[in-house]
């Protein structure tokens, strides 16, 4: 499927971003954020589009996109659950939280529920160790999680999805 070209509004924003940086490579990350806002995820077509617009090698943009786990390369659910399993969270039961979400939703990390409501991602440290175990969904931090309460929390998110920030 061919990706639609960037909207005029997005192009304007992109050019504004470009003008703030010394070169196109420096503007790569903000450009990708804009592209994500426009298309929701950064598939190969979008990566090519950004590379073309910035006149950067497509391989370079691909490298950046794959380095940052918060860029999604496939379409994701309305809620992207980012569950931390790094050391603090692991010690405080991060894997139990992850397991609870997997059981409740029937998906593994990297997958999206068939109804398109949730995407589950296992994250490295999200910088909230004092409240481990934790996860992020959209702009919200969910702290001091306990496995038993996860079904309730997921039901709430199903009602009021937390989309990812631009």
């Amino acid at each position: 499927m061919q990706t639609a070209p960037l909207s005029d509004a997005a192009k304007q924003k992109l050019n504004a971003v470009l003008s703030r940086y010394p070169n196109a490579m420096a503007a790569c990350l903000p450009a990708l954020h804009l592209a994500r806002a426009e298309y929701g995820h950064l598939g190969d077509d979008v990566v090519k589009l950004v590379a073309d617009h910035l006149a950067l090698p497509v391989a370079h943009v691909h490298g950046v996109v794959t380095f940052y786990t918060m860029f999604r390369r496939e379409p994701s659910g309305q809620n992207v659950l980012r569950v931390c399993t790094n050391i603090s969270c692991m010690l405080r039961g991060g894997y139990e939280i992850l397991g609870a979400v997997e059981r409740e939703l029937g998906i593994k990390p990297g997958q999206t529920t068939p109804d398109g409501c949730f995407t589950l991602i296992e994250e490295e440290c999200l910088a909230a160790c004092a409240n481990a175990p934790m996860m992020i969904c959209g702009a919200r931090y969910f702290l001091d999680l306990v496995p038993e309460k996860m079904p309730e929390l997921l039901a709430e998110l199903r009602q009021t999805p937390q989309t990812e920030l631009v």
């Binding site: 090698p57 497509v58 391989a59 691909h62 490298g63 794959t66 380095f67 786990t69």
Partner: peptide
């Protein structure tokens, strides 16, 4: 030629061509 890059992160990092 700008064909090769590093992609991914951590242990899963590899060299890739263009879009992988």
């Amino acid at each position: 030629n700008d064909v090769l890059t590093r992609s991914g992160k951590g242990y899963g990092t590899t060299i890739t061509f263009d879009l992988g």
